[in-house]
Design a binder for these strands. Structure first.
Lengths: 246, 246
DNA sequence: TATAGTCAATTTGTATGACAAATGCCCCGA
DNA sequence: TCGGGGCATTTGTCATACAAATTGACTATA
């Protein structure tokens, strides 16, 4: 897993016991190992099998319930809910879905989301960005320029897109960063073979930056859309290649 | 509070103890009664003041932590996080923000989100909808046509927009329904005086329905955008009116 | 036989008390 | 002045007990 210090919160959830349990159960559900409609074993049994106390297990269940994955009812048990109820935009749920090489159609959905969100965000940023927000974007861009390793590039890339969302001055839009994060993460996973040319999208980013600097919403929208379309195309080339291998 | 039986889950969270506690603390935070950076009283004290056990309180804190509102650390306490970390798209967080007559700029942000999401969703639905999904949308439309009370209208309206999101075949888009729900809810709250003409947007909905039926993405996009722009304009008229009163 | 009502078993919900672990701070010593 | 050790504070985890809700079976009754 990548280390995006300032994005991935140090998240005590990672270190804590209940965090592990939540992660484990969450993945079981999202990956389909336990299917919607099924009820989990009773808490005492489940706690024992996971080697934690009922307290820790229950905290995990509560959070999963808040994410819409399960519903606990007295006297019945914890039933896995239908996908329709899942909090699909939750960072954890997205991560769980992307964890194990997501199916192509899910990647397409991620891309569709980006194509809707990010061009609109770039346009809004071009309209409303403050000087400080522009500086944030530029800093991220410079970091991409300077990146020597794939890891450094990835972090700077994420920071760039986060900064654009931030510049929209709309925190609701910024909360969609989790989608971008999962999307980019998956992208780098799926196209890990050609690590060499990871800088190919730099010109696209430059155009977005300049459009936002000059406060040209339509130019920013187009530049961002082109960037996403380009990376999507590159991803599909990789798909075909790996399918041929198989 | 409206009753949208099939949207608002019966949500044991409403009835349960920890649910009340979560709601109470969540509102305190989102409304700004306790500000980011502050630390809550220690669990024992807080539990006592809310008249619940530490167990129930901790379950509430865990969920609030999952929503990004607070962060608990051993030996320190539960610190309220900066708005940047909040899970802004979470249904509860949105509801808490809209609970107490949200400021104009937040309403604008909701509208901006709708203007980005829903036209794109309508276009996608026009491209990919199945016959069954179209039927869902039509059913909702008929219910709007037949609605005699504001309550019936509101429920059908929500159902219409949910059906459109569903017809995109992209569950990520559908998860943004919480935004539409909060937005419409707030809209009806703010424009509650002229209840009489609640049906004025029916023609807009008709255009969206027909465009999706005929699989015309661009027409669907435009119709949806026009609908949102129209309701936004109507909302702003109301704002001015109520400002004049004050 | 059908039906309503009661009871018992099961499972989650809540409370309580205890201790482990992490953090921050003061104080002491070099 | 700086660094480390220990102490107080607070959350993290565990174990146990009982309350509350749901289910399903059983029974009495028409």
């Amino acid at each position: 897993m990548g280390e995006h210090e300032q994005f991935m919160r140090k998240s005590n959830a990672v270190r804590s016991l209940y965090g592990h349990v939540m992660h484990e159960l969450g993945q079981r559900i999202v990956s389909g190992k336990v299917k919607p409609g099924e009820v989990l074993p009773r808490e005492e049994t489940l706690a024992e099998s996971l080697d934690v106390s009922r307290t820790a297990l229950r905290e995990a269940l509560k959070v999963l319930s808040a994410k819409g994955l399960i519903e606990s009812r007295t006297g019945v048990g914890a039933r896995v809910l239908d996908e329709r109820h899942w909090n699909q935009l939750d960072a954890d749920v997205l991560a769980w879905r992307c964890a194990s090489m997501p199916p192509d159609d899910f990647v397409d959905k991620l891309v569709e989301m980006r194509e809707i969100i990010e061009p609109a965000a770039a346009a809004a940023a071009a309209r409303r960005r403050t000087a400080a927000q522009l500086a944030e974007i530029e800093t991220a861009y410079r970091a991409m320029e300077a990146a020597q390793t794939l890891e450094a590039w990835t972090e700077a890339d994420l920071q760039f897109h986060d900064a654009v969302l931030h510049a929209t001055c709309n925190e609701l839009l910024q909360s969609l960063f989790s989608v971008v994060e999962s999307s980019l993460g998956t992208f780098f996973t799926l196209s890990a073979r050609n690590v060499s040319d990871f800088r190919y999208s730099l010109p696209h980013h430059h155009k977005v930056l300049e459009s936002i600097r000059r406060k040209q919403p339509e130019a920013a929208r187009k530049a961002m859309l082109a960037m996403i379309a380009d990376s999507h195309a590159s991803l599909q080339r990789n798909r075909k290649r790996s399918r041929r291998k198989a």
